[in-house]
Amino acid sequence: MSQEQAAEKNVPVIELRHVDKHYGDLHVLRDVSLSVARGEVVVIIGPSGSGKSTLCRTINRLETIDSGEILIEGEPLPQEGRELARMRSELGMVFQQFNLFAHMSILDNVTLGPREVLGQPKEEAEKYALELLARVGVAEQAHKVPAQLSGGQQQRAAIARSLAMRPKAMLFDEPTSALDPEMINEVLDVMVELVRGGMTMIVVTHEMGFARRVADRVVFMADGQIVEEGAPDDFFDHPRSQRARDFLDSIKGH
């Protein structure tokens, strides 16, 4: 047992090996390899169309890959069926558009996974859900439906929904891109809290401040490739590639 645990420590939580993907003629992922250790926070940045969202979505097979390997805790990502569903239940995913279930209360949104997938009894699921909703600051909205919440509140509820599954890692696909500026920070604050709690995270984002503050590693993508990666301070202060310099300059312009 202890041997296994020790082994597990060294195995990356998420690992991509030589992943390739095409959309028709478009080569959206080119030989992408990436490894995320337990507790590590990896922020992926890059111009739009660089493949960073696609990369994030391949990890729980919302997008399929043409070749290469994706490993979750050393196990290959299953291709279908209950095995895939179980693997997904262990990875939290947060979307740009929140994607809360429109017909359910916030509380039901959060308890759906635990009850349907983990088979938790209602009371237990609701107790934990309310705890999580309080933690992300939307406890008062628990009995409202998504459309009654602001974008920021919806996104925080969506994070709570993912956390309710007690995931091994969280994937954030541009979680603040659809938000009004004044709501971005309330969501980022919740994410910072998660980082402090030691969550393993992959975050696709345009929030450079957030990346610099909390990332263990910044991955810069362009044209479907990982162009460079490194510690945030190194990357932002001394980008090695011309592409990264151009990208950072274009953002400063704003």
């Binding site: 729980n60 693997m87 990875l91 995913m93 979307f95 558009q97 994607n99 809360l100 279930f101 929904r161």
Partner: peptide, 28 residues
């Protein structure tokens, strides 16, 4: 009217196809 996003969210939670149909698609 349901939208692809909600289906993907349900999928990400680990719901099976039948569960998605039963709990997300049909009610809506």
């Amino acid at each position: 009217t349901i939208g692809v996003g909600q289906i993907e969210a349900a999928r990400s939670l680990g719901l099976t196809f039948t569960q998605i149909i039963r709990r997300v698609v049909i009610p809506q």
